[in-house]
């Protein structure tokens, strides 16, 4: 049976080609992470990708599905590695990637059927399970010094440091320049809808402004931009229509800022999971009539937009 991975803008490209382009767009962030946090960042990235890929291979064998390489596990492994703290012990990316693939993807039957974003799920699992390991972030360049991530100490970094990534944080989330380069690649190739990062970022900034917080600082700190370009735009786990995606992005923005301002924690991965779960309901109210119609009609609708 052919599996549709949802309404991609590049209807003529196959999954493998799209996934490899996403990997390409993630490379600037990975390079920046390795530049700032050194060899361990590279190790984490390699182990996470291998973990995801091997788990997928075994899982597809058990499910009795073709084990052809489509790149989706590689993307999951890479994204998961980039949202892990660089000080994580080396078993963390392996355990996280394996859990993400099994629990959030393979149990649902593989690519295109999962409800939740596997990488976000993997990180949430790690955060809830191994809080002590996941909550310490080394300062860039130093090995042993543990610094608070930017959010916990609002106002202590300059905008320039935040933008270039010279701050403590997750491997791929610190360098906003690299994230934006990757995001622009995806938008230029027509692989993601620019409305999602735009609406998400604007919602967060407006809420920060209304709450009297520093909007630019909120935009540039934590995992906001990375999530905006690489996690909130995942084909499978976001709404079908433009209208649905805008609702999704705005909802994610509200929840991100509510937890940041009222709880004081960075819970973007949690909120991605939550909003992923809302997607079928958003689709129910935004897709005109024909929920569940074959691909052809979805694509026709796509062209109208």
């Amino acid at each position: 049976m052919e599996v549709s991975i949802g309404p991609h803008i590049r209807g003529d490209w196959d999954t493998k080609r799209i996934m490899l382009c996403v990997v390409l767009a993630l490379i600037p962030s990975a390079v920046a992470g390795i530049y700032y946090f050194g060899y361990t960042a590279l190790e984490i990235i390699v182990l996470s990708v291998l973990g995801a890929q091997i788990t997928e291979l075994i899982g597809l064998k058990v499910l009795g599905k073709p084990t052809e390489f489509d790149g989706s596990a590689m993307v999951t492994g890479l994204i998961l590695a980039l949202i892990l703290p660089p000080s994580a012990p080396l078993w963390v990316p392996i355990v996280g990637a394996a859990f993400a693939m099994v629990f959030f993807k393979l149990l649902f039957g593989g690519l295109g059927k999962n409800i939740f974003n596997p990488a976000a799920g993997g990180r949430v699992f790690l955060l809830l399970s191994f809080a002590a390991v996941m909550a310490s972030f080394p300062a860039p360049g130093a090995d042993a010094v543990t610094a608070a991530s930017p959010l916990a100490s609002t106002g202590s970094y300059s905008y320039m440091d935040l933008f270039l990534g010279n701050v403590s944080g997750s491997i791929g989330e610190t360098c906003k320049l690299a994230i934006i380069i990757g995001g622009v690649i995806l938008i230029a190739l027509g692989l993601i809808d620019y409305a999602v990062p735009l609406v998400y970022a604007l919602t967060c900034m407006v809420i920060a402004l209304v709450a009297g917080a520093d909007s630019l600082y909120h935009l540039l700190s934590g995992g906001l931009l990375f999530a905006a370009f690489f996690m909130a735009t995942d084909y499978v786990t976001t709404p079908i229509t433009r209208r649905g995606r805008v609702i999704f992005a705005a909802g994610l923005g509200v929840l991100t800022m509510v937890t940041r301002l009222m709880v004081g924690t960075e819970s973007i991965s949690f909120m991605i999971l939550f909003m992923n779960g809302l997607v079928p309901m958003i689709d129910r109210f935004t897709v005109p009539r024909s929920f569940g119609q074959p691909k052809k009609e979805r694509r026709a609708r796509k062209n109208e937009q």
Binding site: F103, L107, G109, I115, F116, V263, F270, F274, N276, G277
Partner: peptide, 29 residues
């Protein structure tokens, strides 16, 4: 979508519930 045979019905619903249960943890504070 058609989930795997052993997952149909309640088993997959429990997996989804686990996902929500994890996401809802962020609201504890």
């Amino acid at each position: 979508m058609g989930v795997p045979e052993s997952m149909k019905g309640v088993p997959i619903a429990i997996v989804v519930a686990a996902g929500f249960s994890m996401a809802f943890r962020a609201f504890v504070g």
